[in-house]
């Protein structure tokens, strides 16, 4: 039998890797994909917890997360396109107009 905490550990690992991607990469596309990765990690945790505790909320939340992730990906990419048209770059360190 799998210990339930194994699922949570896996979720944490996926989440952590996603975080690394967000923090350490310069390409905006990669960053956005890392965000998707983080969301997936969370989904794993939700589903695992829901199934072990018998609470339907776990499944519902996972569902909502997926929906939101989709919406967010769409809007994010639209922004990226608009930005690319303006700045001709996908490097996030180029975007530093809003500073002190």
């Amino acid at each position: 039998m799998i210990a339930p905490s194994a699922y949570l550990l896996l979720s944490a690992i996926l989440f952590g890797i996603g975080v690394v991607g967000v923090v350490a990469r310069k390409n905006i596309l990669i960053i956005l994909m890392s965000v998707e990765l983080m969301l997936n990690g969370v989904n794993v945790a939700f589903v695992a917890a829901g199934s072990y505790l018998g609470d339907p909320a776990g499944g519902v939340f996972a569902f909502m997360v997926m929906t939101v992730a989709a919406a967010e990906a769409a809007v994010g990419l639209a922004l990226l396109i608009a930005l690319y048209r303006l700045k001709e770059t996908v490097d996030i360190t180029e975007l530093k107009v809003l500073k002190w």
Binding site: V22, K26, L95, L98, K99, W100
Partner: peptide, 17 residues
């Protein structure tokens, strides 16, 4: 403190983390 706001998103993300 003002130097915290460098404008670079990566920095912000790091703060969050």
């Amino acid at each position: 403190a003002r130097r915290l706001q460098g404008g670079v998103v990566g920095g912000y993300a790091f703060s969050l983390l």
